[in-house]
Design a protein around this nucleic acid. Sequence first.
DNA 1: GGAATGATGTACT
DNA 2: GTACATCATTCCG
Length: 201
Amino acid sequence: MSGKLGVARRLSRSFFERPTIDLARALIGLLLVHETAEGRAIGRIVETEAYLAEGDAASHSRRGPTARNRAMFGAPGTAYVYRIYGLHHCLNVVSAPEGVGEAVLLRALEPLEGLALMAERRGRSEERSLCSGPAKLVRALGVRADQDGADLVHGPLRLELPPRAGRAPLAIVASARIGISKAKELPLRFHAAGSPFVSRA
DNA sequence: GGAATGATGTACT
DNA sequence: GTACATCATTCCG
């Protein structure tokens, strides 16, 4: 990404080597980029949720590694993509410590680049709802199931630091996670205060 | 083998 | 607010 806002900066592996809740907060404001043959799409992360290895009955890793959740136990900065409700997919970022099965679910983005492509993939064009949900953003950016286990540091699907001009500090609000039936009370959802692009107010 | 469930999105009342 | 699409995974027997 270039232009008057400046150049987005690649992240290093070490960025992801931090406790899950820290990472869930640190990801707010970062860019999710996906470059495909169809073009490039970029969104700014405005909502995340942390899923922990201990004391979290809602985490996919609660019963240890399986064929589905294997990527959660990989290196920090790895993608964990899973299918939900038989029809959608969601994208997580694996955190540290490595090997315990913790990750951050990306729940909403503010669309920044490739809006037409996003709208085409989503079959809708209303900007506010293009990426306002975990399965919506996966669809809008063209993330595929076979990107489960992919490297989010160097690959075509990756996270970047925004250009300086777009890096104003964002106030972050913590609240209960959405759509789960267990461990509902834990305040592990984080979102940018006042953003109109979150999945829920 | 069989049944319930799910980190959702959309349409509809 | 409720209904429902749609299926892999997980759990129970």
